[in-house]
Amino acid sequence: MEVRTIKVFTTVDNINLHTQVVDMSMTYGQQFGPTYLDGADVTKIKPHNSHEGKTFYVLPNDDTLRVEAFEYYHTTDPSFLGRYMSALNHTKKWKYPQVNGLTSIKWADNNCYLATALLTLQQIELKFNPPALQDAYYRARAGEAANFCALILAYCNKTVGELGDVRETMSYLFQHANLDSCKRVLNVVCKTCGQQQTTLKGVEAVMYMGTLSYEQFKKGVQIPCTCGKQATKYLVQQESPFVMMSAPPAQYELKHGTFTCASEYTGNYQCGHYKHITSKETLYCIDGALLTKSSEYKGPITDVFYKENSYTTTIK
């Protein structure tokens, strides 16, 4: 009895394709271990004539594949690729409408935090270190965002349907971005203890939790000093293409032309909904596939993004 075979390709990165001759009487799992086709788990399936010449994702289970996976995804987590594939199996079914010149995501599976993050990423200057993220990001900007969303979920250790947080998501993504040249110098002034300067680099240099107003941050924000008295913390120097200011959701007025974009969060910790506000020729609110415009805006804002380049204080 002759062994019926077909020729397929296996890959971990969709760049390096490895030619395989597979036995049609055995499952993919018996031949390769966990195997995925377009995100779908085909591990328990036997090869079919229609699979001839198709590319299958496999887990990096030998040295060659491990090197290829690390170079593309910059992670050695053995569960990463499987999590990416199972997320992709959902995100490829989502709709990605162009809204006001940006790629958004039609609401499904509690994905409003991903839509808000995706919209924000198209408006701030950011370059990702893992080629996987950078490639998928370019495709997302062009309207094909399924891979990018699935990668975000995998890097953030999230599953489809789980509630997510924009600030946490951005923080994970910033860790995989090139923020080497970003720098922030802060000064804390206390009447009792004097003053202390701190220099922050990388992710810490672009994120701040405690106030939404970048102007206020430049002037000074009140913080408790270690001595128990009130101290003032203010920005001395900022070198970065953008800054992200966050605070627990509270009524906040966004003035046209003073910011790049913002995240609105309605609801409580267990259950809520994100919308995205962007400042173009007027203010726009993007909620999944829905767009509304207004000249002014007041609502429960939790993150505001500002364009920056270089700032030095005039406070002496």
Rank of each mutant, 00 (worst) to 15 (best):
A40R: 13
V160A: 07
P248G: 05
G228F: 00
V3N: 13
P241Q: 10
T10H: 07
Y269P: 15
A177I: 02
E162N: 00
Y57K: 05
T5W: 11
T292F: 13
D165V: 01
N268I: 07
S79H: 12
A150K: 02
A136M: 08
L235W: 00
K127M: 10
P130M: 03
A87V: 05
E308T: 11
A250E: 12
C225M: 00
H18I: 07
R167N: 05
Y137K: 03
Y72L: 08
I45H: 11
K95P: 05
L151V: 03
Q30V: 12
V236N: 02
I124P: 02
K106R: 08
M170N: 04
G299N: 04
Q134F: 06
G53D: 10
R4N: 14
A205Y: 00
P241Y: 00
A247L: 05
L65V: 07
A250Y: 08
Q31T: 13
A136H: 12
Q196P: 02
C182E: 02
P78Y: 09
A250I: 09
T11A: 06
A262G: 00
G82L: 14
L173T: 04
T226Q: 13
P224W: 11
Y36M: 03
M244N: 00
T19R: 12
V99M: 15
D109S: 06
S79G: 14
G29D: 09
V304W: 00
T313W: 11
K298C: 13
I286G: 02
A145W: 07
T169Y: 02
P60A: 11
G288K: 02
Q230P: 12
E162L: 00
D63P: 08
G143I: 03
K191E: 15
K7R: 12
K233F: 08
A231P: 00
D109Y: 03
T5L: 12
L179W: 07
C225H: 08
V22C: 13
D180G: 10
K280N: 15
N178S: 09
L186F: 14
A108V: 08
G202P: 01
G82W: 13
K46A: 14
C271L: 14
T75Q: 09
R167H: 07
L118Y: 06
N178M: 07
D77Y: 04
Y57I: 10
Y96S: 04
K255R: 12
T10Q: 10
Y297H: 07
T232N: 06
L88F: 10
I124R: 04
T10I: 10
L173V: 09
T11H: 08
Q238G: 02
N89P: 07
E2K: 11
V22K: 07
C285E: 12
K316P: 15
T313I: 13
F148H: 03
Y113H: 06
H18L: 07
V12T: 07
L283M: 12
T159N: 10
P47F: 05
L118W: 04
E264Q: 07
L290S: 15
L37P: 04
H51W: 06
A145I: 02
G29T: 03
F9H: 14
P78T: 09
T198G: 03
T314K: 15
N89V: 14
N111W: 03
P47M: 05
H273Y: 00
Q122N: 03
T312A: 10
L59K: 09
L179E: 03
H256G: 11
T211C: 11
Y214T: 01
A40H: 12
V22F: 06
M85W: 11
K307E: 09
L88N: 05
S171M: 13
G299H: 01
R167P: 03
Y172V: 09
E215M: 06
T302I: 00
K183M: 10
E215A: 09
L291V: 15
I277F: 00
S294N: 10
Y297T: 01
K95T: 14
Y265V: 00
Y28Q: 04
L81A: 06
R184D: 00
R139H: 12
C225Q: 01
S246R: 05
C112E: 04
E144L: 07
K106Y: 11
N100W: 05
G210P: 04
N147P: 13
S79I: 11
F305M: 03
V8L: 10
Q216P: 00
G101P: 04
L17Y: 09
K293G: 09
G288A: 04
V203S: 10
Y252W: 14
G257W: 01
T198F: 14
P34C: 11
C227T: 02
T211D: 07
N16L: 06
V160N: 03
F56H: 04
Q230E: 11
Q197L: 09
S79L: 13
F80Q: 04
K298P: 04
Y234G: 01
K316R: 15
H276G: 01
V221S: 04
D287T: 06
K280C: 12
E71S: 08
E281F: 01
H276Q: 03
D77A: 07
Q237F: 12
T19C: 09
F242C: 01
V221L: 13
L133E: 02
R83V: 05
Y28M: 06
A69H: 10
H276V: 02
F148M: 13
D23A: 11
F56E: 02
G202C: 03
V160G: 04
T312R: 15
M24K: 10
T55E: 07
Y28I: 06
V42A: 10
K275I: 07
L254H: 00
Y57E: 05
A247C: 09
E68R: 07
V8E: 06
H74S: 07
G210T: 01
L114S: 02
T159Y: 12
Y172P: 01
C193N: 06
Y73W: 03
K307P: 14
R141I: 10
K46V: 14
C156Q: 08
N111Y: 03
D63F: 08
V58G: 05
G194I: 03
A247G: 08
T159G: 10
P130C: 08
Y297I: 07
A140R: 01
E144K: 11
K233S: 12
G39M: 09
Q237T: 13
T11F: 05
V21I: 13
Y252T: 15
P248N: 08
Q197A: 07
H48K: 15
T302N: 02
E68P: 05
L133T: 04
G257H: 07
Y72N: 08
K307R: 13
P248H: 11
G29F: 09
T266D: 11
Q134I: 09
H176Y: 15
L163M: 12
G194L: 02
N100I: 06
P60H: 07
F217E: 01
L65C: 07
N157E: 08
N157T: 01
T258A: 11
D23G: 11
S213A: 05
R167E: 03
E204G: 10
T55V: 12
L119P: 06
R184M: 01
H276R: 00
Y274V: 00
T312H: 11
D23C: 13
